[in-house]
Design a binder for these strands. Structure first.
Lengths: 351, 351
DNA sequence: TTGAAAGCGATACCAC
DNA sequence: GTGGTATCGCTTTCAA
């Protein structure tokens, strides 16, 4: 094994004819270095093709850990728990490099975010992983973090594109809707008369899902029609009631796209009405209570947004950024998965 | 910031009343330690909840890198290139911990594996990531690696379950077939008369896909029928010819499941015959040349086996094993993805 | 069988 | 501004 030609701060110091301390200062632009020596040092570094040894760096600067704040909703059974697990599991892999997570969940989406963010500001974090519930409302704080406090903000599962956040990680909502439409079109024979159940069209994410769905349906089935767009405001009772009305009004309905995780009331309404199985339901996300409906065929398929992977990706991007100096991409889109009966058991929410 | 209570070899040594060297020997079972002192040391370690600092370890033992051999087919456009990228990208993330990859591709699946393995035996690798082309043939070498040479063998993309390999990573073939059947059943209205195109039924992987397909089709469509199982021996011309015959013989055919990546001749045969679009094709894997057929609807969907993720997972499992002492699972199953027109662009083979 | 001390490659601090 | 040196936590000699 040919020993690699030696490179390292030591060698740089020797070549540049200066001391270790000076090399460090020059390399890191710590300012108390004369322009001439800095140039000498940088030249020597380049000449050697210097690549810092991350292990040694982590060990030497172990006292200064990289702390990442996490502010996402606390939930017992659903989506955000998976996000959290993805974050924590991945962070553990880098704990030996000094990565540390400060987990400060909020009780629910859009509740207490500002206070949590302010708390983190005081805790000396270098980055924050955040699920903005009320985009507009927290934007000023995100901007403060990024601009005034030099804290990188990564949004997961939801975005605040008007803010100065560094990165957003998500499944593109438009694509989400398009995929649902394609599945629905391919699964329902005959004329497509379909409905969409969403949360609130005022929510950017929800609206874009509906747009994607409509556009793709049009492409797959030019004769298809969206006969209703129901807003359920994420309420089970509202969804149930409106769905029953819909089914009564539209006996020829061929499919329903539920663009949020609120699919259970839709399923119940279908069972009530005797339309389960005939009306194809394309749902969103996956959790234990939805499993029976997938198994009995009421839900034909579900679009899975990879919550665990979203959390994992957030940490990976930040690690690459802080430890390797990689750029943070403005957005990081994930490929949604299709949940069917056959592959159901392989999703971590179920298995 | 409350400083963590100190733990570390130093502290263990103090408590056990021995020296650093002794602690190290005891902790690593280096044998030249009396049973009594070893017990003292281990007790102290347990009492402190000792967790070794991986950074320091990597730094101190920088000379002894962990080398992993990779023996997979070299291919320009397809599956194994993705596997390779997954391996190399992930390995790079751990280079600072002394992880090193020795990439020794074979020209094609099942060609020159034995020679490549023997070469690795001489290169002092601690693990080998392998795609066994002729399971039976390399089994003795795998066993030699595992038992005589203390080398962990991880199979990706293909398995040799009769050998002593530590881990196999794959999408379960049975599930692969089942998922294809569910998609096909849900996408083709009317009576299901379907065909399967496979490589060779003698190949375990291929046979199990067909089994899964048959079983799930039966569940989804009890009246459905598999009217033909075509073996193409991975030859384009053979596949094309047999498909044309099939289409002539079976005018009522409703779907074809192509369980290998050899879907292009099937598509051409369908176009030739004028049956494209009407006969639903469920394909396997994804590569550039298949894209037009997905876009024009000849291929209704494809089952994606996550080659990149397979490579990535192999490295992660090995890192966890060598660096954290985690057990290697006997098998590691991945969840296949469903490729449709709408999400096509998000796969790395295409985008 | 055990102990003492010398690294590993960077950072950080204190003198000058 | 710059140089010297201790330090991070562990592994690995070399002596005893």
């Amino acid at each position: 094994m040919a020993k690699a030609p030696k490179t390292g701060v030591r060698e740089i110091a020797r070549i540049a004819g200066v001391s270790l301390g000076t090399v460090d200062r020059a390399l890191h632009g710590r300012a108390e270095v004369s322009e001439s020596t800095r140039k000498k040092v940088l030249a020597a570094a380049r000449q050697l093709g210097y690549q810092p040894n991350l292990t040694a760096r982590a060990l030497a600067s172990a006292r200064s850990t990289t702390r990442i704040g996490v502010c996402i909703p606390r939930e017992i059974r659903f989506f955000y728990d998976q996000v959290r697990d993805g974050i924590l599991d991945e962070a553990k892999r880098y704990s030996h490099l000094g990565l540390e997570v400060l987990y400060q969940p909020v009780p629910a989406l859009g509740t207490g975010e500002s206070a949590a963010l302010r708390r983190m500001f005081r805790s000396n974090v270098r980055a924050i992983i955040l699920t903005p519930g009320h985009p507009g409302r927290v934007a000023p704080l995100i901007d403060e973090a990024e601009k005034a406090r030099n804290i990188r903000v990564v949004c997961v599962a939801s975005d605040d594109s008007a803010s100065a956040r560094s990165t957003a990680i998500s499944v593109e909502p438009y694509l989400n809707g398009a995929l649902a439409a394609e599945l629905m079109a391919k699964m329902s024979p005959g004329p497509a008369r379909v409905a969409v159940v969403t949360g609130m069209l005022a929510t950017e994410d929800h609206a874009r899902k509906v747009q994607g769905f409509a556009a793709e349906l049009q492409k797959e089935r030019p004769e298809g029609q969206i006969v209703a767009v129901i807003e359920d405001h994420q309420e089970e009772s509202e969804s149930y009631r409106k769905c029953l009305q819909l089914l009564k009004r539209e006996p020829e309905l061929s499919g329903i796209y539920v663009s949020t995780a609120n699919c259970l009331p839709v399923c119940r309404a279908l069972r009530e009405n005797g339309a389960a199985g005939r009306v194809k339901v394309i749902a969103t996300d996956l959790f234990k209570d939805a499993v029976p409906w997938l198994e009995n065929g009421t839900i034909a398929a579900s679009i899975y947004q990879h919550p665990y992977l979203q959390g994992q990706s957030a940490v990976r991007l930040l690690v690459d950024h802080f430890l390797q100096g990689a750029e943070l991409p403005r957005v990081h889109y994930l490929n949604p998965a299709v949940v069917l009966r056959a592959n159901l058991r392989l999703f971590r929410e179920v298995g």
